[in-house]
Every structure is written in structure tokens, then in C-alpha cells.
Design a protein around this nucleic acid. Structure first.
Length: 160
DNA sequence: GCCAACGTTGGC
DNA sequence: GCCAACGTTGGC
């Protein structure tokens, strides 16, 4: 009996990499790199499994919102950008023998019919436990409860 | 652009 | 191991 899928929320600045960029990537798939926070890394390492569903959130934009659904298609492996001196994610303290940072591959499943804004999330009492809404949460990868995933997807289907 | 809330770094 | 300084995130 396979374990039920987990659910996650990942953040991206749309100016850097948007959900549309993911849709336009080969196979609607990309390597999710550049995570440089240990807690987020540990979620990727210990939690993210192939087939897990991921909400794609646009941060640092107007309005910040959940915009799409993706899926984990490759589990954690060393993030190649940490070894690349040309990359802004280069980490001199990492080596291929002792990698510090991990990446996963994610694939777009569908774009939400309409974005679910941060403001809308905050207004929904059922979502009070959402990690995204908790104080000072700046993690770029965070776990999501199944019920919250379902709720947010349902909100995208409703008329405004 | 401001600022709150963190996380990381490095001196001691 | 403490903690001040500094850097980053991200909403507003």
C-alpha cells in the first residue's frame, strides 16, 4: 500500500521564474534549484516524493498569489548550481563530494482558473493553519495539509 | 522604498 | 556557545 501523496507549497518570484515559465519549459518540467535555506532543504530531502502535489505561489509581486499546480517528478539530488562559480547560487563551501544543497524536479500539471491571492487566503477561516500565513514565514518550500490543498484549488474554481 | 522577521556569520 | 552585526525575504 503506497503512502498517500504529500502536498507542498513552493514560492517563486514571477520576475525570476513564473508558472508560465514552467509551462513553457521542455516537458513543462524544471529543476527546482537555488533553495538556500536548511529547513526548506530538509523538507525537500526528507519529505518530497515523486507524485507529491505542489501549489506554485508567486511572491514579491502584485498580487502575491497561488497560481498553479505542479508535481514532484524527481526526488532530491545535489543542486548543480552550488558548484557553478558563474551561478548566483554558487556556494564555495559545497563540493560534489560534500554537497550542501538539493534540488528536485517539478512538472506543471495545471494553471489555476484564476489566481488565489494572499489576501483571499487570509480571509478564509478554514485556512488559518496554513504555514504560509504564519508569522514571519519566509520558507520557499513548505508542507501543506491535504485539506488546505483541496480548499485552495476549490477557491480557484469559484467566481470572484 | 520601508521595515519586520528571520537566518547566518564570525569574533570572543 | 553566545550574541551582535549583517544579509535576505517578502508584504505593504
Amino acid at each position: 500500500m503506497p503512502k498517500a501523496a504529500n502536498y507542498w507549497l513552493i514560492k517563486s518570484e514571477p520576475d525570476v521564474f513564473s508558472f508560465d515559465d514552467l509551462l513553457n519549459s521542455p516537458g513543462q518540467c524544471t529543476l527546482w534549484d537555488g533553495v538556500r535555506n536548511y529547513q526548506a532543504r530538509n523538507y525537500m530531502r526528507d519529505g518530497m516524493k515523486c507524485g507529491d502535489k505542489v501549489l506554485f505561489y508567486h511572491s514579491n509581486c502584485q498580487p502575491p498569489a497561488v497560481v498553479g499546480i505542479a508535481e514532484v517528478v524527481r526526488e532530491a539530488y545535489p543542486d548543480p548550481s552550488q558548484f557553478d562559480p558563474e551561478s548566483k547560487y554558487f556556494d564555495a563551501k559545497a563540493s560534489p563530494e560534500k554537497p550542501r544543497w538539493l534540488a528536485v524536479d517539478v512538472k506543471a500539471l495545471s494553471k489555476l482558473k484564476r489566481p488565489v491571492s494572499l489576501a483571499a487566503l487570509k480571509q478564509e477561516p478554514e485556512l488559518a493553519g496554513l504555514k504560509l500565513l504564519q508569522r514571519g514565514n519566509r520558507l520557499s518550500v513548505m508542507p501543506l495539509e491535504h485539506k488546505d490543498f483541496v480548499k485552495i484549488v476549490a477557491m480557484a474554481e469559484q467566481s470572484p
